[in-house]
């Protein structure tokens, strides 16, 4: 019962957007009792979005950013997480403490210095500049560390006795056991990169480089915001997330369970 209630609460705004995106220009959008079924369903809004803005090239830009961020997190967070969980080196505790400390800082505080850094690297107005700051998420490192820690120490010790190097232990013992968490990290990284608005807006100047979230803002101009078009744009940007989730969902739920029973 409670589950159903939560389902209704989370899904209904989404359905409202969907129905708005299908409503024709003759229909009222904001009413006291919102009607979910459009009276004259139409796909014209989607066509108009595609006409107004280059949806496909914006989506391609978003994909490039998301690919860099996903690759960075899948590789970087895995290696860092493995090092923090399984390797012993001086300052490991301090490093972990620093990681945790950066998590506490809200993004708004660092955004200006981040922009100045990216700019002086010569990456302002490039997709790499958009992707770089998110390429290794601290939270993802911590998640991967937890996953690696769940592997019994004895397995590692046995491998060490057999003469395995750190890389071999990562490859043959670590990775096969953290696939679930890896897919969680992948999904989070993808959604984070795909949905981000403020940072790409700040880095990018040339409209040709805009990501989808920034580009969709063209639908929301001064004196000219049509809620139907905005809703249609939202639906378009939502599709890829659904696809990624559908592909990875088998691993995803495995990963969620993995996190629940700590080793």
């Amino acid at each position: 019962m409670l589950l159903l209630l939560v389902l209704v609460l989370t899904v209904s705004p989404f359905l409202w957007q969907l129905s708005t995106s299908l409503k024709s220009l003759q229909e009222d959008i904001y009413t006291r009792t919102p009607s979910f079924l459009p009276q004259q369903p139409t796909l014209a809004n989607y066509a108009e979005v595609a006409e107004t803005i280059p949806v496909w090239s914006y989506a391609a830009n978003s994909l490039v950013v998301a690919a860099i961020v996903v690759a960075g997190n899948a590789v970087g967070a895995t290696i860092a997480g493995f090092a923090l969980a399984k390797l012993r080196f001086r300052g490991a505790k301090l490093l972990l403490g620093l990681f945790l400390a950066t998590l506490v800082l809200p993004g708004e505080v660092t955004i200006v210095s981040q922009y100045v850094t990216v700019r002086s690297l010569g990456l302002a107005d490039t997709l790499l500049g958009v992707a770089l700051p998110g390429a290794i998420g601290m939270l993802n490192v911590l998640l991967m560390r937890t996953a690696f820690q769940a592997i019994p120490r004895e397995m590692d010790e046995a491998a060490i006795i057999d003469g395995a190097t750190a890389w071999q232990r990562l490859r043959h013992i670590g990775l096969p056991n953290v696939r679930g968490m890896l897919s969680v990290v992948t999904i989070f990284a993808f959604i984070g990169a795909w949905d981000d608005f403020l940072w790409p807006l700040i880095v990018l100047t040339d409209p040709a480089n805009y990501t989808l979230t920034v580009g969709l803002q063209y639908l929301n101009g001064t004196f000219s915001a049509n809620p139907r078009l905005i809703a249609a744009g939202t639906m378009i940007s939502f599709l890829p997330i659904m696809i990624v989730f559908a592909v990875l969902q088998r691993f995803f739920f495995k990963g969620v369970e993995e996190g629940a029973i700590k080793g």
Binding site: I111, V112, Y115, F197, L198, L201, I202, Q217, N220
Partner: peptide, 12 residues
């Protein structure tokens, strides 16, 4: 510039 977050954009 897009409508949203314009002040942040200008300040950065």
């Amino acid at each position: 510039q897009p409508a949203e977050s314009y002040s942040e954009k200008v300040l950065t």
